[in-house]
Computed example of a mutant assay.
Amino acid sequence: MLKIINNIKKKKIPLDDYINTCLYKYKSSYYEKKKIFGPRGDFITSPYISSIFGEIIAIYITNYFLEKKFYSFSILEIGAGEGVMARDIINTINKFKNINFSYFILEKSENLKKKQKKNLSKLKVNWIKSLDDLKCKNLFIVSNELLDAFPVKHLKKIKNDWYEKYVCYDNKKNKIISEYAKLKNKNQKIFKLVSKNNDFIEFSPSAIEFLNQIKKVLKKNKDNCFLTFDYGYLDNKFKNTLQGLKNHKKVSIFEDPGNVDITYLINFNLIKKIFNNKSNFDNIIMSQSEFLTRAGIIERLRQATNILTSEKDKLKLEMSVDRLIHPKKMGNLFKCLIITNAN
């Protein structure tokens, strides 16, 4: 934490640089050290709620290729956490006969990569360093709560001028604060993607760069697909959704840097525009509830509860699925984005 604060004391830095420092830059940064997932961590993700989440994704991926009469394909998971979803997807697809597949993981955090290699040591998994390391034929790219982990910028229009949020250290108050400074680069690409009636923009330059790389991969083969889940909204207008999470509670992003997750809600309307910009893609956005229901989670729940003998285990499984698909729980808050070639 001291290393992070000392870095800010030297000079004010853009908001996304601050977030990157807190989450990734040092060994003392958030994703590089502690247990962050699950009930004992700071937040819980869908794969931790029930293995059914990964099973349904596995079935969807398999059916996607079987409908095209492909029995051999590759899966790339980007940002695989501790490997929970990867384990569930691999174990499920392994039950299908005459299916040959390879599983790859692209992970930024060295800490999480070590945990993945430990947790997936008995399964066939390959780790890659960049998207360029993959052959791009019959490739299915999948991620869960990935985009919200990219550092964001805040831009604000004051009168007729745009300003950018910076983070600095107030020596008098002895704490981290933020302030807006006049935007240096007025020709940022983001302005070409957003509605002109916005006076506030929350976006991640690194996420846009990443999604443009995904576009290139999808273009290389007409049968490639990108599927991702994240919490977010669909709107032309941006909201200030940046928040810190610690022990499953919302806190200030300036509180205890390096020990707090910093996240935000994805504007899926912006994501659509990124993929549609000078490209021809089919994109489907639906709630997590709709995706899981369409993909057969209710039927899978029936099958699983019929096998279970313990009423306690049945109730636990039913409650887990309810949490994943109920509109007032994760069902509507989380969105599913599916991108395929339109050609």
Rank of each mutant, 00 (worst) to 15 (best):
D161K: 12
S279M: 02
G244N: 04
S143F: 10
E55Y: 03
I128W: 10
L265T: 06
H248Q: 10
K312Y: 14
V260E: 12
T241V: 11
N119E: 01
E67P: 02
K216E: 15
F53K: 03
I285T: 14
S130A: 09
N171E: 15
S46G: 05
I89E: 03
G244C: 04
K182S: 05
V84D: 02
F140V: 07
K215S: 14
S28K: 13
R302C: 11
I141N: 07
D223Q: 14
L131T: 05
K156P: 02
L106D: 05
N198P: 03
E110L: 14
T340G: 00
Y30N: 03
I338V: 09
K189W: 01
K328G: 00
V194A: 01
I274T: 06
S50I: 02
D313P: 02
I214F: 02
I190K: 08
I338P: 01
G258A: 09
N221I: 01
N185F: 06
F229E: 02
K216T: 10
N269Q: 15
N212L: 07
S289N: 14
G296S: 10
F150V: 10
Y103V: 00
E311Q: 14
V125P: 05
K278E: 15
K113H: 00
N7Q: 05
G232T: 13
I105S: 04
N171W: 10
D282G: 06
E209I: 01
S252Y: 11
E299L: 05
A342F: 07
A207T: 02
T45D: 07
I338A: 00
G81Y: 08
T263N: 05
E255D: 15
Y169W: 13
K196Q: 08
F226G: 00
M85Q: 13
S29P: 09
N197A: 01
F140H: 10
N259M: 04
N185L: 03
F65D: 06
L146K: 07
L301D: 06
F254N: 11
D282N: 15
